[in-house]
């Protein structure tokens, strides 16, 4: 097991370098270098050449100064190495937009997005696992066929459509007003409220974004769960358990369920990047001040350091997610760590 962990960590290094390299190269793909972008106030003016000509001389001076400051006058590999070094020390530089530390900007927003995504993941697993168990134990019954159909259709519903329909029909507007259309707390939210009132207000605000963020996850996962249950149920040891007279409930929950949960651990790693992408859409639509919204705003404002930092942070989060799910998998199924050694 120890050797497996070391091996996994070792294999993580090239992946980490690769991901950061992609991020770094994307930065250099931009028309104009970061100094020019900064000169344009990070507001996308660089492309149109917003810097007026009569100020060109002064700007040129500033540009060369900035280039020196950012180390842009050095060769690319060295720039990359310097950037990596800064990354390891969590120095992401300053935002082009407001000169604030990018790291502080990100840290400010992390709790919101983490709350949103953790709640969604919980919801996904809480609904998908029982649904999958039901579908598998009642396979081909009417109930199974209905859940299959619903899951399949839900999976095809575009997030942007579901969110827009929710905004139009149940969030104020001309129709129903069941949920708030924006934000995470009411405008008159105050710290003097009772705990219960605070919780109620927050739950009311976060309910819709969480449901929207998770519906396609549980549609997919319940299918996987069903397939994996059915696969285990077809194996000899299950028949054996039944033959020795165990109750069906014990067979399902003790023998089948445990074994069919194994693959679901890996799915966690593949849901994670999707959730990050979904956060961009959901947080933008519902004006939730999380990482997704920050990312969208920074992209539109061409705020390079922030975009790159967000990109790297979410890539690292995903990598860690993959690593954890790999290790968890090796814990629940020792054959994996053993098999790799050969």
């Amino acid at each position: 097991m120890g050797r497996y962990i070391v091996q996994r960590l070792f294999l993580l290094i090239p992946t980490f370098v690769g991901v950061t390299l992609v991020g770094f190269l994307v930065m250099h793909l931009a028309p104009g270098d970061p100094a020019e972008l900064r000169a344009a106030g990070g507001l996308g003016g660089a492309r149109e050449g917003a810097i007026s000509r009569n100020k060109q001389g002064g700007v040129d001076e500033a540009l060369s100064q900035w280039r020196k400051q950012y180390g842009l006058d050095r060769p690319l590999p060295i720039q990359y190495a310097v950037w990596l070094k800064n990354l390891v020390t969590l120095n992401f530089g300053e935002s082009f937009k407001d000169n604030q530390s990018v790291w502080n900007k990100i840290i400010e927003r992390v709790p919101v997005t983490v709350k949103l995504n953790v709640l969604s993941l919980l919801l996904v697993y809480l609904i998908a696992i029982p649904l999958g168990i039901y579908s598998a134990t009642h396979s081909n019954s009417l109930g199974d066929q209905i859940t299959t159909l619903v899951a399949f259709v839900l999976f095809a519903v575009p997030l942007i459509w579901a969110a827009t329909m929710a905004i139009v029909f149940i969030c104020g507007g001309d129709f129903l007003y069941l949920f708030p259309p924006a934000g995470l707390e009411s405008l008159d939210y105050s710290s003097h409220w009772s705990l219960w009132r605070k919780l109620k207000d927050q739950a009311w605000h976060i309910f819709l974004p969480v449901v929207l963020l998770s519906y396609d996850g549980f549609a997919g996962l319940s299918r996987y769960m069903r397939a994996s249950m059915l696969e285990v149920m077809g194996q000899d040891f299950v028949q054996m358990a039944r033959a020795k007279g165990l109750q069906e409930r014990v067979v399902i929950f003790k023998h089948v369920l445990r074994n069919s949960l194994i693959p679901q651990v890996t799915i966690l790693a593949s849901i994670l990047p999707g959730l990050i992408g979904g956060s961009v859409i959901i947080e933008t639509i519902f004006s939730i001040p999380g990482l997704g919204q920050l990312g969208y705003e920074s992209v539109l404002a061409r705020d390079y350091p922030t975009v790159l930092a967000l990109f790297t942070v979410s890539a690292i989060l995903t990598l860690v997610g993959i690593l954890i799910s790999d290790l968890l998998l090796a814990v629940v199924d020792p054959r994996i760590a053993f098999g790799r050694r050969q």
């Binding site: 991901v19 992609v22 990047p273 990050i276 992408g277 969208y296 992209v299 890539a315």
Partner: peptide, 16 residues
Amino acid sequence: LSIPTFFLLITVAALL
């Protein structure tokens, strides 16, 4: 797989 694809997409698409 570890790259947040959607984020990469909006970044690149916004730059070009």
